[in-house]
Nucleic acid binder design. Structure first.
Length: 856
RNA sequence: GCCCGGGUGGCGAAACUGGCAGACGCACGGGACUUAAAAUCCCGGGCCCCGAAAGGGGCGUGCGGGUUCGAUUCCCGCCCCGGGCACCA
């Protein structure tokens, strides 16, 4: 039984070795606050190669959630790793601080949006610091401050000058809950993206638009070059841009006797089927309709009905499902290819906002037209020879069971001079002939629409435009920027733009004529803010321009961007557009903002996204309070590969905490100072060699994870395995009996372990680094290199199979030749027993793995 | 309907180019230390069958086929879950 004295000693030693994350993390957190330069990027003349790693900036909604923690833990691990790899790393953070959520929350909390937002930022910034993310806070960007949004306004003026920003009356998506307009991108299944239960309505308003469609083709083409982007995201953007090739064809209206257009232009991707057109279908909103039906109240009422059906479907989000209805207008149009008179109809399945809002209806060769023609008894005329898959076209009795036949792998019939041409050939010739004849041409349309950026809301960047009674629309002169968003504004939801009520702000003088003018009272969509913030990070306080050319030229493109896949379309396509505009303004040289994109999986709770309304939000604060930041960070990386969705459960977090505790103890109980004497690998004991081998294998695994798939869950697992191996040989590391290995080896192992741990658990790594007697900045230490020779196993266990079934295992030298392995395997007693009386066909040897003996 | 992911023990997952399925961890069971507990450490483990045990046999990566000496991995056909697009002419 130990005496009291001894027991006290042991207890004290144990206390010292106990892992106390709060003491460690507070200590290092305080140091990092005092030395912010530790995480600061060096200027563009740094001798180190640059690396720009960026995580998507958050909304300052109030507090961080686990999705943020995941995003930033991935980015921070990478940033720290790249620092250690010798790069000059830019790793900034900022705040997407304008926007509806902030404003709505401010209304509820009865605090001005600015105050509410800034206090949220302060809180979330403190959370980030507590979590130990290595951000260069000297680069911080806050989009709701005039220093930043003045450049939004500046960009807007430049775009206006170039005709890229324009104003037009348009039917817009209106969310009654937000009391504002939504971009097409913000409408999800016919509902507001923020109020997923609230159907979006349609209204006509004067809006500002950015001409993103001017860049549609380039946005599409450049996707092919973004090889560092997930294919999924590129496909989503391709679909969103929605390019389709076809032709525009003008149909003359028979007996048109009114002013203006006497033709109906249709867009088709199947001009080769035009001899099969048996009607023209117009969208209920088509502008020519008024002329066609005159003032016949009955027809007007019917059109209104069709329009209403379509709108209701749009609002309900099931545009694809509504029953097709239509109405004959009583008028006809002339098919320019054969002079035939086609009845003009109105149909609820034709959309005004795609193509020209009019189609030629070819029932035999289009699903929708077929359905419609069947319903209304319109003629169905076959002009493409229907064929079954894999069979040649059968001329003669056309098989109507194959209708509608929409394939393009056949021949034309009943098509005048084009009969017997292939579809492909016919499309080419017909488009040419249409152009020659002056009634059409080949054309391309896009699904992508211009970007409506006007918002009837308060908390956003004011659009820098004026309305003068005398001069009309007048841009605010550049020297008058920024147009400051006034404070103390009533932002209740009583409709219209809140800024319109601030008379002293709205009323101003016209810079052109000096007369009275009114300011634009709409503000910009917040996606404008996030479309270029990553450029501003490089020089956030610059007062003379949005960006500094040299600095931008050095840092761009962004080497690695990390964020949620939910931004695959909106944010990332706007950012790409903005980049191209900035390039055309001569501000930057790059055409794309992001070289490599990583889309992390979502953090779910019970299979659903975490959200305040669901009440299933897990706060990182509780985890940090209980286990410390390192545990929280390592756990979220360990729980699943970063690209996969993660259903949050903290059941396994104890294990990670235990692991960090064991790491702490492993070093704390016997930190070995680095000393001069080297060791000779050949003279090491087999145990010591084994430990060294595992060390090098671990370096390789973790380095490979960083260079490849970022499966940091396996990196953490590798560290756990290494620790298990190290603690399996206490005689190597114990103070008293360290004859099993030289101190230099122990010192090397301990240091390397800390370096490998540093990207994942920075607090603990720094503490242990200091404990090892090191005073250098851990982040500037070199990432460990592995030695292939040292990592190689000396002995291997190989499997002996008979007909693919495992029958034995052999431990052999790693240098064994194929022939040796074959002999050893055949000689194994178990193999001999099984082989008895059977015919040996062959033996397949896979060096280092197995021998498979094939018998009959 | 079309286009992407994914489906492996009680759970999170691993196996990266066809070669020992289940590394690592959680939870669980047993043990050590302790007056006791906590903490810590050690051992066990896919499922089923035979056996007191040592050991042995069979089945197993959503389902059904195929290729191969050998398939979680490749091919064909399905099922289920998640995401994106969808009268786009």
């Amino acid at each position: 039984m130990p005496d009291l004295h001894t027991r006290t000693d042991t207890g004290a030693a144990r206390d010292e070795q106990r892992y106390d994350p709060h003491r460690i993390e507070e200590k290092w957190s305080a140091r990092w606050q005092q030395q912010p330069e530790l995480f600061r990027a060096e200027p563009f003349d740094s001798p180190r190669p640059k690396y720009y790693v960026l995580e998507m900036l958050p909304y300052p909604s109030g507090a961080l959630h686990m999705g943020h923690v995941r995003n930033y833990s991935i980015g921070d691990a990478l940033a720290r790793h790249m620092w250690m790899k010798g790069y000059n790393v830019l790793h900034p953070m900022g705040w997407d601080a304008f926007g509806l959520p902030a404003e709505n929350a401010a209304i509820k909390a009865k605090t001005p949006p600015k105050q509410w937002t800034l206090s949220n930022i302060a809180h979330m910034k403190a959370q980030m610091k507590r979590l130990g993310f290595a951000y260069d806070w000297s680069k911080e960007v806050t989009t709701c401050l005039p220093d930043y949004y003045r450049w939004n306004q500046w960009f807007f003026l430049k775009m206006y000058e170039r005709g890229l920003a324009y104003r037009k009356k348009s039917r817009v998506n209106w969310c009654p809950e937000c009391a504002t307009v939504l971009a097409n991108e913000q409408v999800v299944n016919g509902c507001c993206w923020r109020h997923t239960e609230t159907p979006v309505q349609q209204r006509d308003l004067e809006q500002w638009f950015l001409r993103i469609t001017d860049y549609a083709q380039e946005l599409l083409d450049d996707l092919d070059r973004l090889s560092g982007w997930p294919e999924k995201v590129r496909t989503m953007q391709r679909n969103w841009i929605g390019r389709s090739e076809g032709a525009l064809i003008d149909f003359k209206i028979d007996g048109a006797a009114w002013q203006g257009s006497d033709t109906i232009s249709v867009f088709t991707t199947r001009i080769d089927t035009i001899f099969g057109a048996t009607s023209i279908q117009l969208a209920p909103e088509h502008p020519t309709l008024a002329n066609l039906i005159g003032n016949n109240p009955e027809l007007h009422a019917r059109v209104d009905e069709l329009m209403a059906e379509q709108r209701r479907a749009k609002e309900a989000g099931d545009v694809g499902e509504i029953e097709k209805h239509g109405m004959f207008t009583g008028r006809y149009a002339i098919n320019p290819f054969n002079g035939e008179k086609l009845p003009i109809w109105v149909a609820n399945y034709v959309l005004m906002d795609y193509g020209t809002g009019a189609i030629m209806s070819v029932p035999a060769h289009d699903e929708r037209d077929y359905e419609f023609a069947k319903k209304y008894g319109l003629e169905i005329r076959i002009v493409i020879l229907p064929r079954r898959q894999g069979e040649p076209p059968q001329a003669g009795e056309e098989d109507t069971a194959l209708l509608p036949y929409t394939g393009t792998d056949s021949l034309l019939i009943n098509s005048g001079p084009y009969s017997e041409l292939s579809c492909e050939e016919a499309m080419k010739r017909m488009a040419q002939d249409a152009e020659r004849g002056g009634f059409g041409k080949a054309a391309v349309t896009y699904r992508l629409k211009d970007w409506g950026i006007s918002r009837q809301r308060y908390w956003g960047a004011p659009i820098p435009m004026l309305y003068c009674d005398h001069c009309g629309i007048v841009p605010v002169p550049e020297k008058d920027l920024p147009v400051i968003l006034p404070e103390n504004v009533d932002i209740t939801l009583s409709g219209g733009s809140p800024l319109g009520k601030v008379k002293e702000w709205v009323n101003t003088t016209c810079p052109t004529c000096g007369g009275s003018a009114r300011r634009e009272t709409d503000t910009m969509d917040t996606f404008v803010d996030s479309s270029w913030y990553f450029y501003r990070y490089t020089d956030p306080t610059l007062e003379t321009a949005p960006v500094a050319p040299k600095t931008i030229g050095y840092w761009f493109e962004i080497d690695q961007y990390i964020g949620g896949v939910e931004h695959a379309i909106l944010h990332l396509i706007y950012s790409r557009f903005w980049t191209k505009v900035m390039r055309d303004l001569g501000l930057i040289a790059n055409s794309e903002p992001v070289a490599r994109l990583f889309t992390q999986g979502m953090v779910l709770k019970d299979g659903a996204a975490m959200s305040k309304s669901r009440g299933n939000v897990v706060s990182p604060d509780e985890i940090v309070a209980r286990y410390g930041a390192d545990t929280a960070r390592v756990y979220i990386l360990f729980a699943a590969p970063p690209d996969r969705d993660l259903d949050w459960s903290d059941s396994a977090i104890e294990g990670v905490h235990r692991f960090l505790g064991r790491v702490h103890r492993f070093i704390a109980q016997n930190p070995v100072q680095r000393i001069g004497t080297a060791y000779c690998v050949q003279q090491l004991s087999p145990e010591a060699r084994r430990v060294l081998r595992k060390l090098h294998q671990t370096i390789k695994r973790i380095s490979d994870d960083f260079a490849g798939r970022w499966h940091f869950n396996t990196s953490v697992a590798a560290l756990m395995e290494l620790l298990n191996e190290l603690t399996a040989y206490p005689e190597i590391f114990a103070c008293a009996s360290r004859k099993a290995a030289p101190s230099a080896l122990v010192a090397e192992i301990q240091r390397t372990f800390v370096l490998l741990l540093a990207p994942f658990a920075p607090y603990l790594a720094h503490e242990l680094w200091e404990m090892l007697g090191e005073t250098s900045n851990l982040l500037r230490e070199s990432w460990p290199e592995y030695d292939t020779a040292l990592a190689k196993e000396e002995e291997l266990e190989i499997v002996v199979q008979i007909n693919g079934k495992i029958r034995d295992r052999l431990v052999v030298s790693a240098h064994s030749s194929e022939e040796e392995l074959r002999k050893l395997a055949l000689a194994a007693p178990k193999v001999q027993a099984t082989l008895d009386g059977r015919q040996l066909l062959r033996a397949i040897v896979v060096p280092g793995k197995l021998v498979n003996i094939v018998v009959r």
